[in-house]
Every structure is written in structure tokens, then in C-alpha cells.
Computed example of a mutant assay.
Amino acid sequence: MRVVIAEDSVLLRAGLELLLTDAGHDVLAAVDTAPELLAAVARHEPDLAIVDVRMPPTFSDEGVRAAIVIRAQHPSVRVLVLSQYVEERYAADLIADRTAGLGYLLKDRVADVDTFLEAVTQVGEGGTALDPEVVAQLLLRSRRSDGLDRLTEREREVLALIAEGRSNRSIAVDLVIGAGSVEKHISSIFTKLDLPPEDSGHRRVLAVLRYLGSDLGSR
């Protein structure tokens, strides 16, 4: 993929550039301020922008505000936000419009190279990669349980494992059921929660948000 990086830490920026290059991606620009990020995106129209939340001059929210601008003005550019903390209000703004092609990871996850590169690929291909802590914080803003009472006990178990970030294969192993059964349960969950028939990644995130905002998710 063609990537632009915005990170004010010289060491982390260089590390990300080396990591992405070694993984076969083309790093078009590596900058340390939000204005430079916006200029680089406008100039290169990359596949993916990796953005630090806090950058100069105030080190508050310049990066995430720039990410929101990119999402609005360059809809074809995927955005992966990296943050030391969950910027709850701006994370909600990022997700409010659409979750496709969006990632929000805490920097602790970047230390796990495989997890980070997997998120880069997932977001770059139009998917969603949200840190579980980000999801949990967002759900403190809006706690809902609509439709969860329609789920069977098995469907609730499947949804709980999805909320833990488990893959379908991992869920099948944990519950000792076939992969086909997991897919059927997930399809039923989407239907019962009245989630729109969009890409599965999007509906998966919405289902997790619904679950974590309920009494079930707080147990």
C-alpha cells in the first residue's frame, strides 16, 4: 500500500517507516505536524494515513482533528489513528459517519508487530480495527441493549467472544462447534440486532458496541 505517516516522535516515526517498508509498503511521506499531514495527503492521495493523535504545536488533538478532515475531504484514504490514550469525543466523531477503512489503536498495541501489521492491512483494505479499550470507552457514552434480549444463550456466548476480539476460528475452537455454526450464529445476531446488511466488519463493530453498552457487557 501507499502510506503516509504522521508522528511527532522521531524514533517511533522512523520505526514505523522501517517496519512498513520491510513489510512491502511504500511510505510516501513521514511528517510530524498536522498541517504537513494534510498537505502530504492532498499531494499523494495515499491508500492509508497513519496518524498520531497528539502532535505539535499544542500536543492536544491536532492529529485526530486532521484525521477527521481527511475522512471528510479524502474519502478514499483509509485512516489508522495511533494514540497513547483514548480521545473519546474525537474517536466517536471518527466512527459516527462510517467505520469502513478506519482504525484506532492504542500505542501499546504497536509494540506487537504482527498485530500492528495486521491492522494496517485490515484498514488499508477497507476494514475496521478498533482497540478494545477504545470501544469500551466509547460505550460509556452510549449504553444500549436494544435487541439483545432476542439472542439465544449460544448467540450471547458468540457475541461475548466477538467483543473480546476473537476470530471466527477461535470462537469455534473455544465453543467446540464448527466454523459454519459460528457463521450462522453471527448472521442471526446481526439480524436480531437489526444491523444493516453492509460489510461484515462494519456490522461486527456495531454488534460489539451494542453488547458492551448493555448489562451483559458490564458483567
Rank of each mutant, 00 (worst) to 15 (best):
A119S: 05
A119Q: 05
A119P: 02
A119H: 00
V120M: 03
V120C: 12
V120I: 02
T121P: 01
Q122M: 01
V123Q: 04
V123D: 05
G124M: 13
G124L: 03
G124Q: 07
E125N: 07
E125L: 04
E125C: 13
G126N: 09
G126I: 10
G126Y: 06
G126V: 10
G127F: 12
G127I: 00
G127W: 01
G127H: 08
G127E: 01
G127R: 14
G127N: 00
T128C: 04
T128E: 04
A129Y: 08
A129E: 12
L130R: 01
L130C: 00
D131Y: 12
P132N: 07
P132G: 07
P132Y: 04
E133A: 11
V134A: 13
V134H: 13
V134Q: 07
V135S: 03
V135E: 07
V135I: 10
A136L: 11
A136F: 04
Q137G: 13
L139G: 08
L139C: 15
L139F: 04
L139A: 05
L140K: 03
L140E: 11
L140S: 14
R141P: 08
R141S: 08
S142C: 01
S142T: 01
R143E: 10
R144G: 02
R144V: 11
R144Y: 08
S145A: 14
S145I: 02
S145N: 09
S145W: 07
D146H: 03
D146G: 02
D146T: 03
D146N: 13
G147S: 01
L148V: 06
L148F: 02
L148D: 07
L148W: 11
D149Q: 14
D149V: 13
D149W: 13
R150P: 00
R150K: 13
L151V: 14
T152L: 11
E153S: 10
E153N: 04
R154D: 08
R154T: 13
R154N: 10
R154V: 11
E155P: 06
R156G: 15
R156I: 06
E157F: 03
E157R: 15
E157L: 01
E157M: 10
E157Y: 12
V158I: 11
V158N: 07
V158Q: 13
V158C: 09
L159H: 12
L159T: 00
A160V: 00
A160D: 12
A160P: 09
L161N: 09
L161Q: 15
I162F: 05
I162A: 01
A163I: 02
A163H: 14
A163N: 06
E164L: 00
G165H: 14
G165P: 07
S167D: 00
S167N: 05
N168F: 14
N168S: 03
N168R: 10
N168K: 10
N168Y: 12
R169K: 08
R169T: 05
R169V: 06
S170V: 06
S170T: 09
S170L: 09
S170R: 03
I171A: 06
I171F: 03
I171R: 02
A172M: 07
A172H: 01
A172N: 05
A172G: 13
A172Q: 13
V173I: 11
V173W: 14
V173P: 05
V173Q: 15
D174W: 10
D174I: 11
D174F: 12
D174Q: 13
D174A: 15
L175R: 12
L175T: 00
L175Y: 04
L175K: 08
L175A: 13
V176I: 06
V176E: 15
V176H: 11
V176M: 08
